[in-house]
Design a protein around this nucleic acid. Structure first.
Lengths: 139, 139
DNA sequence: ATGATAATGAGAACGATTTGCGAAAAGTCA
DNA sequence: TGACTTTTCGCAAATCGTTCTCATTATCAT
């Protein structure tokens, strides 16, 4: 698990400065149960530290993404959605009615993807698999 | 196969007016071997009819997408890329070095996706599977 | 504490896409 | 074909999410 202190240590290890704003943003990410947008992250971070600005949210997310600490998901519709990395790789199922994001993983699909790419003469660098669906209406 | 005349007939069937601009855009899509961006489509359509404007390209693509005639792909990086629908469903492999887009299809993967969604209690409305890779350097 | 330097906030700038609006075509019917 | 109605068009301004500029502030090694 990642504790806030743990994350702070990681930041220092990256050789970047530990600022109030960055800690606020990391805390938001760590305590998020959903996959918040930059806008949401800004709002939540401001609760903890009103001085956090939009620019800093984007700058911090970009740096954390480069560092591999956060994952940026560009689902359809408006705006990227973020989550802390650290867990196992997974793909996403987006509920078209609520916007809720469900994580899942299939070793079989991963294997098939690699096979297909190999047949086409490619090495996969990364991939994106998103299912968009609805919960069938109870009848 | 879709001939230009065929596409025109489809347009009329949709109850929309057949304009020079729309025909130019459809022709561009039909003769495109790649997955052009709105910008490319505008440039190519202008060769055939200089009066085509950017706004019309976007408006036309939006209407064709809604009509199911074209597919809009939002790969990573800047701008959506379009292709004529009409063929069989397929997913994409994007060459990270050249930007080239390769189409592929796997019945197995499709089936697995449906199974996974079903287990989670969902019906898939649509999905997006993109592989991003490179051709291994010859040694 | 102090200074070198990185990070910040505010707002302007950006790129892709969308929209409002008056002018110009397309379709319709006589 | 001409007159009329409605859609579509081009242009420019507006949006939206995101990035950048720059003067100011904060971090951290000393």
């Amino acid at each position: 698990m990642n504790t806030d202190a743990q994350l702070e240590t990681d930041l220092r290890a990256e050789g970047v400065r530990v600022t109030r704003q960055r800690l606020a943003i990391l805390h938001v990410l760590r305590s998020a149960a959903d996959h918040p947008r930059a806008e949401d992250i800004l709002a939540r971070a401001k609760e903890q530290d009103p001085s956090v600005s939009q620019a800093t949210v984007y700058r911090t997310l970009a740096m954390l993404e480069k560092a591999g600490t956060v994952l940026k998901n560009e689902f359809d519709g408006a705006g990227a959605r973020y989550e802390l990395a650290g867990g196992a790789h997974h793909d996403h199922l987006i509920d078209l009615d609520t916007g809720e994001v469900i994580e899942f993983h299939s070793q079989k699909i991963e294997r098939l993807q690699a096979e297909i790419a190999a047949e086409l003469g490619y090495d996969i660098e990364w991939h994106r698999l998103e299912l968009y669906g609805r919960r069938p209406k109870a009848r």
